[in-house]
Nucleic acid binder design. Structure first.
Lengths: 203, 203, 203, 203
DNA sequence: CATGAATGAGTCTTCATTCAT
DNA sequence: TATGAATGAAGACTCATTCAT
């Protein structure tokens, strides 16, 4: 329990520092200071600086995935699910900007090195969206020729780029809600079989 | 001229090494070796390691932008332009994977630090797509409520994520051409006013 | 008594660990684990890691010296005493290899630092041999020109080097008994006045 | 040539510092300062701190062995060779005390770790003495039952212990020359077939 | 212009020691 | 007494950058 706390405290500190400086420019001693522990204490909980980043990814991605799955379970309509997916994912940026920045920036950065560690969860996350499309296809809502392997990446990339803009932007012209709506409506209409605009509440 | 050559040789070497190791794990001495120059020579052409990356971005992005603009100038139809945009951008990955990897991975990585240097060209690139949408809106093809600021990022993000997958993937299930087609059709149909599927040659 | 036990337990553990890793590469925590006590407990019995080594030397050397003196007290003949000295000292290696290794290797290593702490007992040990020579000189057996200060070190060094070989060697071509015999016979004959080979049982 | 110089300069500095502090307490930065080079320069010439010690051993032992072989080549008589061996080896201590201390103290210290690196030359050195004995046995001077494997170690150990005393002692009661003489005469007489004292010049 | 040997600031990590429980 | 989590000082090593040639 106490030990769990310190583990979390260090992860939280790391998120802050990585977001502020980036992984390579972050100093272990700075994470320690931010976590209010001694430098050496870090190494009681993590094998190395790399290990902090990896653990951070695994743990936070797990939460994000679980949170998304829970959130979507409440919706039945694939179209509503897509809307929910977009707003959920983008609102994460609002709620936890530091984490968003780390996931956005650092996840990409060490791709080759890190992808081994987060690939599974990254895929699991993408496949949530793939399932929605498949569902929509089975229900005759979405076109059969939509390739889920491509569409899931396109949708995630669209949201991600928008999130990146939002996190890094200082002006923030577009609200998160509006962004989520625009992107989901483009994809919904873009994938639909008949050319009716996305049904249900459009806002 | 001779001087120009060496500048290029170093940039080319840096693209290779950054792609292979990532910016932070790349050694200046390794770039020098790859470029067949002495370590010190690098500093006759660039102020610092950072400066190599910045110059690399500016020069290569300039080429990409010009190439894209030229390519699109041949098309009149906004819908065809979108298709062209997607295939042009994605085929870049095929033609120059190392550069793609650097732009994909490293551009993101140092976002805050780098954004100052590449923001303008990044925006210029995005705005090419924004102009296409606007054109389409003016021609009554695309919905008026499409926010070009959001849509341009969504489209770019979708292509980029797909490109990242393609660059980093070892299996590459989805062909570049198919990916470009799927993504552009989703966006075209997703943004269209009336519900006709994208006209013109769909495949 | 209980306290005495723990002191010993730690010394014994230290002997094992120092033998295995060497003083500098031994970890206090490893000694603690080997002794089945907590890290902090070590510091209830010893001032520092150095202090463990010093205490170890003092206590074990005391035992060795007393044991040697006792053993030699049974012999009257200086020549027999030399033989006994050699076999006693070398057989120590067989009986307690870990201790032998620590004394052999670590004693030397920290010479300057340690000499202050073990010098007295080291000298006492050497002087046991010096006394034997003196005895032999007084009995007219050994040459008068033998310098006991030199001879005692030469004899000790000869045994020690042989012991080191035996402890570190994996093949061990020469038996401890044969080594003791060869060395003592060389010294006996080498120091004798008249040229009779060492009298008494030569084997 | 220039590079050779710096290599030597660092080795010489290391000998001084290792002698003064011992290997583990020596700081790489101190070696650098002693050698008048920057810390990083050390690593242009040696892979690691360990590598400095290993290189030092290999190079200096090579010199010692060659010097000894040369020196002995001038002598024909095995008995004179033993006298020469002793005086040569011990006078090394006088001439290069720092080196002697490093070889004496540090060679022993990291025995298991280091023996792999110096074993061959250590054996080569020991075998010089073994050859002398064998020669003497062939000439009928030394007893046949002298085991050269044991005697070479005994002789080396005797000299070494005496050398250690001389290097570490502050009072130095026994002169190097006298020590060499005493030890060689004990071994010569101790190994001789007939019991005549060492013939030839006893001094 | 070109070289590449030299520099030395900078950081992760280890581990003897402490101390609250 | 005993514990073992926490401490933080210390050091080997790296590598971007410089500069004498």
């Amino acid at each position: 329990m106490k030990s769990e706390d310190k583990h979390r405290k260090i992860i939280q500190a790391a998120i802050k520092v990585f977001a502020r400086k980036g992984f390579y420019n972050a100093r272990v001693s700075e994470i320690a200071r931010e976590a209010n522990v001694a430098d050496g204490t870090i190494y009681l909980y993590f094998k190395s600086k790399d290990d902090i980043l990896i653990s951070l990814f695994e743990e936070e991605m797990r939460k994000i995935i679980n949170n998304m799955k829970e959130d979507l379970a409440k919706q039945k309509d694939p179209i509503e699910k897509i809307r929910k997916f977009a707003s959920n994912h983008l609102s994460l940026m609002t709620r936890n900007q530091d984490l968003a920045e780390v996931l956005q920036v650092e996840l990409r950065q060490s791709s080759k090195f890190m992808r081994d560690y987060v690939k599974d969860q990254y895929m699991e996350f993408l496949n949530i969206f793939a399932s929605i499309i498949k569902e929509g296809q089975e229900q005759g809502i979405f076109r059969e020729d939509i390739n889920t392997g491509i569409a899931k990446r396109a949708f995630f990339g669209a949201l991600d780029e928008m999130g990146r803009y939002w996190v890094l932007s200082t002006t923030r012209k577009h609200s998160i809600a509006e962004s989520a709506k625009q992107i989901s409506e483009i994809f919904i209409q873009g994938m639909m079989k008949n050319a009716t605009k996305g049904k249900g509440k459009t806002a």
